[in-house]
Design a protein around this nucleic acid. Structure first.
Lengths: 262, 262
DNA sequence: CATAACAGTTTTCAATTCGAAAACGTAGAA
DNA sequence: TTCTACGTTTTCGAATTGAAAACTGTTATG
């Protein structure tokens, strides 16, 4: 068994896995990987016969998860629909969206709203100000927590043993010169995040990009974080602008208050 | 067999359905419906024993589709992640997103980008201008085509037999005083959409809300449509503003051109 | 504190179902 | 036409699922 202290550990193996379901999930995963495929391609990629693949795909299709066009099967937009439902249940999304919009138009920057799942950050929403940069991040994207502002804002308010577990699971891979790659530095950084009540990213994941993030924690429970992203030239050249930091922090606080007093 | 002239009919029953997969899909559907549930609740709702439910949920969990918190199971954000991947493969999204942003900041309104799947419209993106209304529609949402501007812009460029099939499948339910509820009127309206090259919605789905939509069709293939939504007072009180219509139409054309000449 | 009630997990094994293999159908190429 | 390449369907033996019951853990109650 796994030390599932938070009830959130995913790495547990089911001890009576439903193999047939797993086959369908592998198929879904492959369709995503290949952006759609024909049956004989899937036959090469997965250890299933074409008859079996056909049965699974037909089943997924009648339920709307897969679409077929000229013998090519693709994942349908039903997963987008489902994802929309899941997202709408996050209070941080419901209440954060309008505040993120406002922060974006006030600052002109790119604003991100994200939460943590399974030791990763998941982007729930983006709002674009007038001068917003175009980034590789999009709604639904999953990133490690150690080298982004939002991630550090979240980590700072998770119990230390949880942070350890996450680092064990995902490591601290170096992505730029500034990426934090050892635990000691990370924990010091998290301490300073707690003191300042905001986190920063000085080109730690992407060259030329800086971020400021603030945690969203009604009742001291960390639900996620909000951040602004901008080119280093505009954001972090000589220390972070106090006014901007203030705007991010107070937006986070407003969201937390809205969540608390529904 | 079904008359699957477009290769897109979903209503086909698989003739060797994978029952185990279907059970997992029903579970997923129920978790969505209930916004998460405990095993004994699912036992009441589905015709499965708790042992079986447990096996399925554990399997979905080890693959990251489901999250467990204090004996409550919920769909995870993995479906949002998957949905993001699916969406990013739509050229109308890739190229439409920046143009939708521009249209939103130029007009100050709510801008929608949608495509058709299985006879429904699916929202792919929304951009919010300064005065954008707050609507019930969100990314991923599915609506019928007959009473929204985007829907009519799409229907107008689908083959007539396809339109017939879609009306057979989804009907023409009345949602406001202005909803088109008979085929003849609908086909006349579609003819006029083709003449004008844009479609409108005058409170046909929502009281007080009007929309203008233009089809996106590189190479005469209809990929979706773009629309602006605003209160009747601002948009449709005395005929639609020619300049606004022009902005929507030219945005749609720009997107089509971008798609065509990558 | 003991006990009851309840819900989740695990085990066992018979019934179900899946899917390998082969046959069949269909579309395009030569 | 025949050939080839895939997709689809069928059949039936083998693998897997899940009903039922036992077990465990947790919360409520006397």
């Amino acid at each position: 068994m796994c030390l599932d202290t938070m009830g959130l550990c995913m790495t547990t193996e089911a001890n009576h896995p439903v193999r047939t379901t797993e086959k369908s999930l592998h198929l879904i995963e492959k369709l995503r990987e290949l952006d759609g495929a024909r049956i004989h391609e899937l036959e090469d990629e997965l250890e299933m016969t074409k008859g079996a693949i056909h049965n699974h795909l037909s089943t997924l299709r009648t339920h709307g998860y897969v679409v077929k066009e000229d013998n090519e099967y693709r994942l349908s937009l039903k997963v987008l629909t489902l994802g929309g439902y899941v997202r709408s249940n996050y209070s941080i999304y419901q209440f954060g969206r309008p505040k993120a919009n406002k922060l974006a138009s006030d600052t002109g920057m790119l604003v991100n709203l994200a939460t943590e799942e399974n030791g990763q950050s998941v982007y729930l929403y983006q709002a674009r100000g007038e001068y917003a940069v175009n980034l590789d991040t999009q709604v639904g994207h999953r990133l490690r927590l150690h080298n982004i502002a939002i991630g550090k804002a979240i980590l700072a308010y998770l119990p230390a043993e949880r942070v350890e577990a996450i680092v064990d699971q995902w490591g601290l891979p170096k992505e730029t010169e500034n990426t934090i790659t050892d635990r000691e530095t990370l924990f010091e950084e998290l301490e300073s995040v707690r003191e300042q009540e905001f986190a920063t990213d000085l080109e730690e994941r992407t060259e030329g990009l800086c971020c400021i993030a603030a945690p969203i924690r009604p009742d001291n429970e960390i639900l996620g974080a909000i951040s602004i992203s901008a080119p280093t030239s505009r954001l972090g050249n000589q220390g972070f602008d106090d006014e901007l930091v203030g705007q991010v922090k107070s937006t986070a606080n407003e969201i937390a208050l809205d969540i608390k007093y529904v």
